[in-house]
Amino acid sequence: MMERKLKLVSEEHSQDAFSNSDDELMLLSAAGRVDAFEALVARHYAMVCATASQYLGDDGLGKDVAQDTFLSIWNHCRHYVPAGRFKSYLVKVMFNFCHMMARSHKADRNRKESFHREQITRISTPDAPLDVLMRSEMGRLVQEQLVRLPQKERKVLLLRYGQGMSIAEAADLMDIPIGTAKSHAARGLKRLHKKLKRKSV
């Protein structure tokens, strides 16, 4: 299995790093190919940054987490086992950095204020039509309540609805049974709905 992968990613067959799979790019990165790693970052940066930003409720912290995540993956790429689960590995590393960031920056305390400031700037553009403003306000409320959810429910919701994955995919990335992922999603949705209802009342 390993030999087949290594053969695939030999220098002569992989001049164009962007056409390779994640595993192949990781193997090339382990061989010191920075362009391969660049392709990997370009492929997943937006997903990592968006999810981390939503998870922490702060775009700045999300960017920091994305950077830390990719640097950590680069530093440990020699130990990566190419088993077709790069995305799962990436998501795990990202959430670990999210937890560390939340602890070290006390994001839980500050996220509400920073998020408020950002959203107010966004929705107060003079040309914004009413439905756009309404949607922005709804989005702000949802994001505000999202960061208050328990970690497991927040993760499943972000992967399932934030990234548009299926429940099975989200469960696979989080290494949990599908039934458990469904339960987390259902509880998270119900909790969000309840909080939003209370807010709107």
Binding site: Y45, A46, A66, Q67, L71, R135, L146, Y161, G162, L189
Partner: peptide
């Protein structure tokens, strides 16, 4: 509506400058 609002706009987070920054470090 909640599910829609949760949907992340990944494209908005795609930043060539940030990617370049990471690659520069490496």
């Amino acid at each position: 509506q909640i599910a829609t609002q949760l949907k992340s706009d990944n494209a908005a987070y795609h930043s060539g400058a940030e990617i370049h920054k990471i690659v520069t470090i490496i």
